[in-house]
Design a protein around this nucleic acid. Structure first.
Lengths: 271, 271
DNA sequence: GATCCCGTTGCAACATGTGCAACACCCATT
DNA sequence: AATGGGTGTTGCACATGTTGCAACGGGATC
């Protein structure tokens, strides 16, 4: 809608692939160098891009800070987190929390018992939307029209022989999920990994998030994992209740918005 | 430099504080509603903002994905990570890796032994630049002019009585750090927490990153922590060597840039 | 059913962003 | 040293894209 902004924002995914110099950016955007320069300067002023010593541009630090603040102000996540931790301790497997946004599903929290390292690398990554248990739950809650439209639009990559192969099968699976109120992914993404998932609902009953427990079948069989369903669903329901309980905000103060209440400091800095 | 882009980007930090509706955004930007609408639409198309059910705008998912890709393509981080893990295992304390960008210092990796939970919440957060050991190291490597300019510009919040109080003391500390090649923060940020840090250098000898070991003094005294300095410095030097070793890239293919080599897939998706 | 509030659209006036060409700079080459 | 190709950078005139307005629509609330 706005050409200038559109061009400027197109630079970001471009730089996400790796550093680029002015000429490369201009070429990819198909604009004059001077134009690219001005756009990059503006992005730079806002800290979204950074210029390294060799003069090439990279994505900048502010991006992290923004992503941080965004994820921390998600109220579902705040509420769900202790429950995820508790569930993780009880069953010992990986626990995920995910939300849907437009047509993308993404993890917003994770608790992992055995491999603490590199945990953060998963948060924010787009989810394999055709097979993941959490994705099925979130999409199953859309209107029928939206589900159909989305199914038509999707690719159905065969990660494994058990991946959902096409739109028809996907819609059928969604119907099942919708009816039973929980979902699975039995080796549909990684041959050796099974997942079970349950929805978290808001006051109006709509699904606002989904959570799952994942485990490799060398540790527990699919059946053993399914035995955890009641525990998982109890946890999800507890989160739903707590989420529906609190009013989301104590009501904004005024329209000119004199700075909304700063998110509470949850953790202190260490140097 | 570009008014339109400038306005559009100003929306992001605004939304980072919490969701806002069209009117609020327009008011804060001091532009007409229709203008704000067009900007928000453009941001939305690029996935940087998301419109929730109540029509209010939030920061969007693409932001996470971008931040992810950015941090994963930092070559220092790739190289340093296994060393950080190894150091963490040896000493049992928290290990950080940080870089400087313009005048901001930020953590890009972290290994923590005892509290695996919420690890990701730290990555990307701006560092307390006047007291953190890693910040001292990174700033100490700037030119004298840059150091002076930065010192003048900074605030010196007294987190604790041992925080560095003013520009003069800061510059003095930087001189010391510069000379000795390592840095400390003994209770300057959190009364009970001590840190030691060491620089990671590129081929040209300039500091490209800094790492630190942090521990609360209820676990180890400052002296005991300082005893880890040789180990820390050996690790930092090993990273420096490895980093200087590899050419950063096998050379880009051409100017029209037919997609730079995709970052290697490091971890598979789970549902 | 009337009134308010908010998001949305089309349009004309104008400010803004644009491409060009020239300049400045760095570094390889000769 | 001097040349040449490769960058990034600046000033400027043109016109394109952006702006604010006013009017419309749709959903709540009274």
């Amino acid at each position: 809608m706005s050409q200038t902004v559109d061009r400027a924002l197109s630079i970001l995914p471009l730089l996400a692939q790796g550093p680029a110099d002015l000429g490369q950016v201009a070429a990819r955007l198909d604009v004059h160098k001077s134009t690219a320069l001005r756009l990059l300067r503006t992005l730079h002023e806002h800290g979204l891009v950074y210029r390294q010593q060799d003069q090439r541009y990279r994505l900048g630090a502010r991006l992290f800070a923004l992503a941080q603040e965004a994820v921390e102000s998600l109220d579902v996540r705040e509420i769900a987190h202790p429950h995820l931790v508790s569930l993780g301790e009880q069953c010992g497997h990986t626990v995920h929390l995910a939300v849907i946004e437009d047509s993308e599903v993404l993890y917003i929290d994770k608790v992992e018992s055995r491999y603490p390292v590199r945990m953060y690398s998963r948060i924010g990554k787009p989810v394999a939307v055709t097979v993941a248990a959490v994705a099925k739950l979130l999409i199953a809650d859309l209107s029928e029209a939206e589900r159909r439209a989305l199914a038509e639009r999707l690719d159905f990559p065969m990660y494994t022989p058990r991946s959902i192969p096409n739109a028809a099968a996907f819609l059928k699976e969604l119907a099942t999920v919708r009816e039973q109120g929980w979902a699975t992914d039995l080796g549909g993404h990684e041959e050796s990994i099974n997942c079970i998932g349950a929805p978290i609902r808001g006051t109006d009953g709509r699904v606002v998030a989904a959570m799952s427990v994942s485990a490799p079948n060398v540790v527990v069989t699919a059946d053993e994992l399914l035995a955890l369903l009641p525990l998982l669903r109890r946890t999800a329901d507890a989160i739903s209740r707590e989420y529906s309980g609190n009013a989301h905000q104590p009501a904004p103060v005024a329209v000119p918005a004199p700075a909304p209440p700063a998110p509470p400091v949850l953790q202190k800095e260490i140097s």
